[in-house]
Design a protein around this nucleic acid. Structure first.
Length: 615
DNA sequence: GCGGATCAC
DNA sequence: TATGGTGATCCGC
């Protein structure tokens, strides 16, 4: 490949990368939250140098380097394509683009006051409430990777998403706290209660962010939006002791951007006038817009689009270079348009349920199976909690090189139980093992999509489910059915449909057992994990092999689960011996806890509190 | 529909 | 020594 090898002097030394590549890689390594508030005074050059040196040579680093190189190649292609387009007659494209812009302009709605509320360094702030002495030191929440840090830490270049050992290099005195999600959820609840006063239909965007439409509130109280938001922020601070920042604008997209401008403890309003909005967008770096990340930023920059204002002059190329959706998205950025419809997240339809976990690198097939079984159990719990089954099941693995692979399958019926998830996922895993000899993993996960609700109440003719109603207040009545004949009929039919479905499911299960026991391609052991029973009509419960010790188990589900847990716990004992050696004292003595292993598995205890904010 | 990639938090 | 988990969406095939 390297034909220039004969000219040793003109080339960089092997370990030093060409200058340009080095720069983009360093930028990449700075992480995704560069745009976050609180680092204006940071010497990014120095920070990136430290991160670079801390990371250099690691597998993570190599993977980032690969990604960076691929992106550079992709950008070269984009530039070539742009050069090609420039030689063509693009009048048709241009007209199409302008027509779309005109169409968008027609839809502009400046009548609403939308605000985005964002808690300042939320997790860190909550921790500081419990331990005020932390306010005076740089501090971060999160273990392997930081989820939040306070503003003192940000002065050192410490950021969320950063590996904690890198953060320690930047700021050796950094105090690290473990996450306490319950605590944050509690606090978020308090804040939400206040938000609801201003817009009962507010939309939670995450645990610490929300959108509100305060148009009605302002009208009713004869307040300017800014006054209302001042009042709301003061009320939140007074009652919950947490400071929030806010953005006020005609739509959600701009409000989101605006909430970052005077962060922390501030607010910013973009006037609801076309001219003011266009002006605001004109000089706004595209990276500030939600949806433009590090990759798209670099791609856009390569063709000369740095600011949203630059989008207009490049409009002819955008569809061809980045696709229709990207064009439409960018057109909206240029015009400063966004949605004005704010609604409770409960109205949103969930598309998937998933679980994954990272672990110490493993290469043993039996260990893969143990991880898969663990994931299956976790997913079963999450599916039970969210009341779904999946028509599609996906396996995700991350190799020791950080490369991510996914494989998915469509089980013959919706699945939700751990043993089913395991059985259907195992063939995908064994196939991967064949494709990649000597495979080593650092992560394994499972995801169900194509969801089917298991909530009896909502089932209608088609097995489709009515979205559970938003529990807007304490007095809401989620289960009461609207009183109409039509609905009464549907209720009865739903009942029947449910029974039929249940019978069908039983039949399906039998069929699957048969199918699986015939086709499962298996490994060294002649035994098949998963069901090994003959599909006798009814009566006989299926037999299951333990995925850990591979011994056949006679199982009702409970006995099966108990046995597997036992096997896992034996494995845990071995694991713990290794684990405890790297228990670095990153946590201050007063809160230092022994790293403990969850009773049922080889994983660290990390109770999931997914999306509790929305419940 | 599948698998890779990007993005947000 | 060492770089997260959950959910969504888009693109190319």
């Amino acid at each position: 490949m390297d034909t220039t090898g004969e000219k040793p002097d003109s080339r960089p030394t092997p370990e030093s990368v060409p200058e340009g590549e080095n720069d983009t890689l360093k930028y990449q390594l700075l992480g995704p939250s560069l745009t976050k508030a609180g680092q204006d005074s940071v010497d990014q050059q120095k920070v990136s140098e430290i991160i670079y040196n801390a990371s250099k040579g690691s597998k993570f680093f190599n993977h980032e380097q690969d990604r960076d190189r691929n992106l550079t190649i992709k950008i070269e292609r984009i530039l070539k394509e742009k050069a090609r387009l420039e030689r063509l007659d693009l009048s048709h494209e241009l007209r199409r683009a302008d027509e779309y812009l005109a169409e968008l302009e027609m839809s502009r709605d400046l009548s609403q006051h939308v605000i985005h509320v964002d808690c300042d360094a939320f997790f860190a702030a909550v921790e500081e409430l419990d331990r005020p002495e932390l306010k005076t030191v740089p501090m971060a929440v999160g273990k392997g990777v930081l989820t939040t840090c306070n503003y003192l830490a940000r002065k050192f270049g410490v950021r969320s998403g950063m590996a904690s050992f890198v953060a320690k290099k930047l700021c050796p005195q950094l105090v690290l706290l473990p996450q306490n999600y319950e605590k944050y959820t509690e606090k978020a609840k308090e804040i939400r209660a206040i938000l609801a006063e201003y817009d009962p239909l507010f939309e939670s965007a995450s645990i610490d962010e929300a959108y509100l439409n305060i148009t009605a509130y302002c009208d009713q109280n004869q307040l300017e939006p800014e006054e209302a938001v001042q009042r709301m922020r003061a009320e939140i601070l007074e009652k919950t002791k947490v400071s929030v920042s806010a953005g006020i604008a005609a739509n959600a997209k701009i409000a989101k951007i605006a909430s970052n401008i005077n962060k922390p403890k501030g607010q910013f309003k973009v006037p609801s006038e076309r001219e003011a909005i266009m002006e605001f967008m004109r000089d706004l770096p595209v990276r500030k817009v939600n949806g433009v990340g590090r990759v798209f930023e670099r791609e856009l920059e390569s063709i000369g689009v740095k600011k949203c204002g630059d989008i207009y002059s490049h409009r002819v190329f955008l569809t061809k270079l980045f696709g229709e959706k990207a064009f439409q998205f960018l057109a909206q950025c240029y015009l400063g348009l966004g949605r004005t419809k704010i609604e409770p997240v409960e109205n949103h339809e969930r598309k998937s349920v998933s679980t994954e976990s990272t672990f110490h690198e493993i290469g043993d097939k039996e260990e893969f199976r143990a991880k898969l079984w663990w994931a299956a159990q976790e997913l079963e719990k999450d599916l039970a909690r969210t009341q779904f089954k999946g028509r599609t099941l996906a396996l995700k693995v991350k190799l020791h090189t950080f490369e991510v692979l996914t494989r998915q399958t469509a089980p013959s019926r919706p699945v939700s139980l751990a043993k089913d998830l395991y059985s259907f996922a195992l063939p995908m895993l064994t196939k991967l093992e064949k494709e990649i000899p000597g495979m080593k993993l650092r992560l394994l996960g499972l995801r169900c999509s194509n969801l089917v609700s298991t909530q009896k109440a909502g089932i209608n003719f088609f097995g489709v489910v009515a979205q559970p109603k938003a529990a807007a207040g304490p007095t809401s009545e989620p289960t009461s059915a609207p009183a109409s004949d039509v609905n009464a009929d549907r209720e009865i039919c739903a009942e029947e449909a449910f029974e039929t479905a249940a019978r069908q499911e039983l039949q399906d299960e039998m069929n699957d057992l048969e199918q699986l026991s015939q086709e499962t391609p298996e490994t060294s052991t002649s035994r098949k994990p998963g069901p090994s029973a003959v599909p006798e009509p009814v009566a006989e419960p299926p037999m299951w092999d333990c995925p850990i010790c591979i011994r056949p188990q006679i199982a009702d589900d409970r006995m099966f689960n108990e046995h597997v847990d036992f096997c896992l716990s034996r494995q845990t004992i071995r694991q713990v011996v290794q684990d405890t050696s790297d228990d670095t004292p990153t946590i201050p003595p007063s809160t230092k806890k022994r790293k403990h292993t969850s009773p049922s598995g080889v994983h660290e205890a990390d109770p999931k509190q997914k999306r509790l904010f929305f419940q």
